[in-house]
Design a protein around this nucleic acid. Structure first.
Lengths: 249, 249
DNA sequence: CTTATTTATGCATGTTTTTGCAGTTTATTG
DNA sequence: CAATAAACTGCAAAAACATGCATAAATAAG
């Protein structure tokens, strides 16, 4: 068996079960645990998986959401939220994904904005529901345990019939070369469908995630209309993006 | 079991019950209490939980507006939740509505139950997502601001294609004469569709709502297979219902 | 075709991590 | 304050890990 076969098998197992154990893989693939460990190390180095003691887990693994716990990079996400809100106008129809940044934005939406929000995130839906002037529509499907958003063909089919004004998405990886990338296959499928069903696309991402690449491609940079980070346009890290047609906020 | 899995389980338990006990976790996860203590210490160090003598609690516990404290008729709903859970078996496909009682039930579902839940409530969906062995599917639509469940033709259409084992619904009014009644027209439409798409129907209702009638009729009493209240079967208030074909729990 | 070089793998070795246990100290409760 | 439960400390065993090295296969060069 080729090394590449083995490693792609490992990735498949992680996609399927969200984890692998070194000793199990060793038996299943009939190689020594050392070899498995080397495989896992390689895959981890290229960011494909997350190595832990005893095996590995999917990169999409976060600790389950806990409401009042400190949100990572709080202030940055507040700034991003404010910038994103500046894109919202009355009577718009907006589609949003999930993530802590999106929830922060949902909280900060001004009370007088009258708009319609579609969302694949139950948490964002509930947050938006606190605003009297918003119409909130949840797009249902299987709930992803990793990212707490609705995924699957059901979601994609529903999106197919819609054409909205603006898509707000959080990103896991953004780079000039690879565009927007993500680590969870099923989430990528949904994000693609979301992008196709909207006129404009805005990406919300902390600067830290700029110039990082995840395993799966969501879309090219030129599909992104607005790139929203907590940094100001003039920051050197953003200068390569100045040259693209993507507008920086 | 990997350390990361164990810790993720702990967080999920805290999401559900706002606390964990070291000795309980030790039994559930089949590791020593020392190991649990070390886990709690680690999670506490990264600020995810708050370690206390005997276990840990969620960080939200200190805040004045704690969920559990503001639920009306808490203990009654706990009893109802337990009774409802006794109806659930492995491999069942269950459809649920929303409401605080349903969320309490979702929290108390045993960790080893393997089942599929459809729900029109984003909050119930998120709560169920903390159980590793459950598949959770949200049925999307417009989010009702009053009741925080998805409503509308979209929901009804999706339900039309499904045939599930058991429907769990909260009730606003129950009476011998009028059956189940409710006050919100759009919710009534959805409830009717939910009832039609399930083999069996269980109604969760605090005794207080028995013999009350709301403006709009959902269904007759004879459509209800199980009526779940916090009272025992022998209570006089339930005696009229003893004569019907509805089973009392 | 032969030789040299790289690559992949397994094994032996020593190190680190994880876990459970015994003994002691600290905290909680009535 | 006494009884009990939980927490901490140090230690030991097991498992996982890292490293260096030998072997074998694949590849490249002559």
């Amino acid at each position: 068996m080729l090394k590449e076969e083995r490693q792609s098998f490992i990735i498949k197992q992680i996609n399927l079960h969200n984890k692998v154990l070194s000793n199990e893989l060793s038996k299943k693939l009939a190689v020594s645990e050392d070899t498995i460990r080397r495989d896992l190390k390689e895959l981890a180095k290229t960011g494909k998986i997350l190595k832990v003691h005893g095996g590995a887990i999917g990169k999409a693994f976060h600790y389950p959401y806990h409401h009042n716990s400190e949100i990572y990079a709080q202030t940055a996400k507040q700034i991003i939220a404010d910038k994103a809100i500046s894109l919202l106008k009355d009577d718009m129809v907006i589609l949003t994904g999930g993530g802590t940044t999106m929830i922060e934005m949902a909280k900060k939406i001004p009370d007088n904005l009258k708009a319609t929000f579609f969302t694949i995130s139950p948490m964002v839906a509930l947050t938006l529901a606190n605003h009297d002037n918003l119409t909130v529509i949840g797009i249902g499907g299987e709930l992803s345990k990793n990212s707490n958003v609705f995924i699957g063909t059901s979601v994609i089919n529903q999106l197919f019939d819609l054409k909205m004004d603006l898509c707000l998405l959080g990103a896991n990886g953004i780079s000039i070369q690879e565009g927007m990338t993500d680590s969870d296959w099923s989430v990528v499928q949904v994000k693609r469908a979301m992008i196709h069903s909207c006129q404009k696309l805005a990406i919300l991402s902390i600067t830290e995630k700029l110039n990082t690449v995840q395993r799966m491609k969501v879309c090219d940079l030129n599909l992104i209309d607005y790139l929203i980070t907590e940094s100001s346009k003039e920051e050197p890290i953003l200068s390569p993006y100045q040259k693209t047609k993507t507008e920086l906020l």
